[in-house]
Design a protein around this nucleic acid. Sequence first.
DNA 1: CTTTGTGCAAATTCTTTGCACCAAA
DNA 2: TTTGGTGCAAAGAATTTGCACAAAG
Lengths: 141, 141
Amino acid sequence: MELTKDYLSSHGIRPSAQRIAIMDYLLTHKTHPTVEEIYAALVPLMPTLSKTTLYNTLKLFYDKKVALMLNIDEHTTRFDGDVQPHAHFQCLKCGTVYDIFEPELPELRSVYKQKIGDLNITSVELSYKGLCAHCEQDNSN
Amino acid sequence: MELTKDYLSSHGIRPSAQRIAIMDYLLTHKTHPTVEEIYAALVPLMPTLSKTTLYNTLKLFYDKKVALMLNIDEHTTRFDGDVQPHAHFQCLKCGTVYDIFEPELPELRSVYKQKIGDLNITSVELSYKGLCAHCEQDNSN
DNA sequence: CTTTGTGCAAATTCTTTGCACCAAA
DNA sequence: TTTGGTGCAAAGAATTTGCACAAAG
């Protein structure tokens, strides 16, 4: 919690109670949560928290580059407190988003922040979809 | 138009007038259009066309694998009639989505439809963001 | 006829905005 | 004491749903 506060400060983000709670949630729940999931988790701890603040804060985190904004899910935006370049996989059946740090994904590291032709790359998102092992073998649901 | 009709038929899609018009639009406008853009372009030619049909049809195209559904844009879904594996780049200033077929993106081809660990990949989306050359040099807007 | 496709209107979901109050520098 | 942060309520945008009619096999 104190570490989270320092983390925010060192990135030029004033550490309000709300911001600390939200970043703390992201750092301890690497599940690529939606706004709704974060809200549901934090409201019991911080009853006055509003969706507006949540949206404001997540946008701020994204702008300050302490969170990734993922568009892998067609229905909603997901957030990731892990800003190291890595790929994601979403299971089409259960919806779970998995991290992929496999070394056989050099693109992410080599092309990141480079140019392709006359395009100046500042961010990259690599997303896979399919069935996870659990859903693959489980034909029941 | 006749080619488009055959194209749909050969993919198990009954070629209604609406479906032909929509696929034809996708095949001749490789601009990664939004639903709104497709609608605005087609309504003058087909005044009774509804958004519902457009949504139904684009979903059908996606399911039948004759169109890609792109999540690169955080505000809206974009569609692409080019189903060959390729990457995209969206300019953060002007919003344009460019195709990237660069050969230095082997990931897309090699990993596509393979497994990573115990995850069964069926599709992949590689999206870059940044400034395009035009917006980069143009500080005025 | 029986299934499939279309389209209107309404509903739903996700996200943003306007504004007032509160808090910190 | 001004700037920045929070949160309520309302608005807005994108997408989905329910249902009735039309069209094709």
